[in-house]
Design a binder for these strands. Sequence first.
DNA 1: GTGGTCTAGACCACT
DNA 2: GTGGTCTAGACCACC
Lengths: 125, 125, 125, 125
Amino acid sequence: MQLNFNSPKPIYMQMVDEVKKALARGELLPGDKIPSHKERAQISKINPNTVQRAYQEMEREGLTETLRGQGTFIRNDPDLLVHIRTEMAQAAVQQFIEEMQGLGIESAEVERMLRSQLYQEKKEG
Amino acid sequence: MQLNFNSPKPIYMQMVDEVKKALARGELLPGDKIPSHKERAQISKINPNTVQRAYQEMEREGLTETLRGQGTFIRNDPDLLVHIRTEMAQAAVQQFIEEMQGLGIESAEVERMLRSQLYQEKKEG
Amino acid sequence: MQLNFNSPKPIYMQMVDEVKKALARGELLPGDKIPSHKERAQISKINPNTVQRAYQEMEREGLTETLRGQGTFIRNDPDLLVHIRTEMAQAAVQQFIEEMQGLGIESAEVERMLRSQLYQEKKEG
Amino acid sequence: MQLNFNSPKPIYMQMVDEVKKALARGELLPGDKIPSHKERAQISKINPNTVQRAYQEMEREGLTETLRGQGTFIRNDPDLLVHIRTEMAQAAVQQFIEEMQGLGIESAEVERMLRSQLYQEKKEG
DNA sequence: GTGGTCTAGACCACT
DNA sequence: GTGGTCTAGACCACC
């Protein structure tokens, strides 16, 4: 779980996104237990309340469900993974397109730049 | 100039980015005068202090220069436009790729999704 | 026995209320034996401690009596049923009226809304 | 704003409900500014963070909107009042009916009890 | 001054 | 030990 403490994006929001990404990547599965807020806080070296706020947000978004005294679990919904994955991917694509159009860059050029950096990336990584 | 007051990104940073985008799109040209901070504040309905901070930031980044008593101008540097444009575009591409890889999406799929949404977009817009 | 694990009302209180309701409905009768706390815990999938606390509370309220080695029984008091029933009903009515007055709804309108939903309910159920 | 510090219902939830009731009663109008969380905290003698949590919840439910640095306002939606009012009233009626049916009380008897207490109330108040 | 985030630490209900 | 609420107080961005 990578957190950027200098980002303007609140830490609790970053945590929610990280969990969603882990789900999308298949590293978390529906039904999995996630660490208690105290445990997570120790691991990530942040305050338990901040973790709890992230967990609250996930609950609210239907990402997790919590059993009193037992812990917090990824919701056991078979569609959840695909749903989150497409939702986040489409949002990223959308934001990217808007950003590039905001810079006045043509679709063909957007494609070209993406490919160029995409395959250069692959070699580096 | 589109500002999102609920974004965690500070308004003054959003303003800087909007000016850069206008430059990249060719809507602002090197040497152009930009509105005084009071004028800009009235137009965008934000606090003059916030505008001033954005202007300070642009000055600091070498984007603008201020002539006493005459106002603030886009710096008259022929390379500025291209420089800003490629810088912002590459940053956007980079961020997009990282986001998609964070979701565990393969390069080929990234390309496919981009194209799909890119040309659908074009028809809508 | 319906328990809502997300309600702010403690589970043991919910259990007490459920027993009272079963009594009011005539599903439990004075003198009836109620399950041991271990049994109850297994049935309702809750912690035996929680059940025990509910049983303690019922004992305290004079709802049940415990015979050593024999188990816990609904108190054999002929007035108990009527007493509980009217007590709970009046509390419910009282709370409802206060809630509706808190919303600034007139008595006539309260009556009308109740009838409307009451008979619609009947058809559905 | 009446808060019950001994209720199991969290204070921030009580605050949300109180604002909704004030709206339903017409004491708050769409567009009205509500006190800052610090002010409200002083008035109600609770912690500013608790107030803020209530305000957050109201924002999330679409009850209020907040303008950075200016304050929090009842959302300026003409349907809001009626919407909240009917929503809360129906929920109260529904809960009341379920409670009474849980006690095994017939519809006719429910009506009778309501009327009896409703008009007795009126004389007292 | 206003809202938003974060830390720190307490208390409670439930397992 | 686990989640939930609350208090207290700090810092920041914006008005």
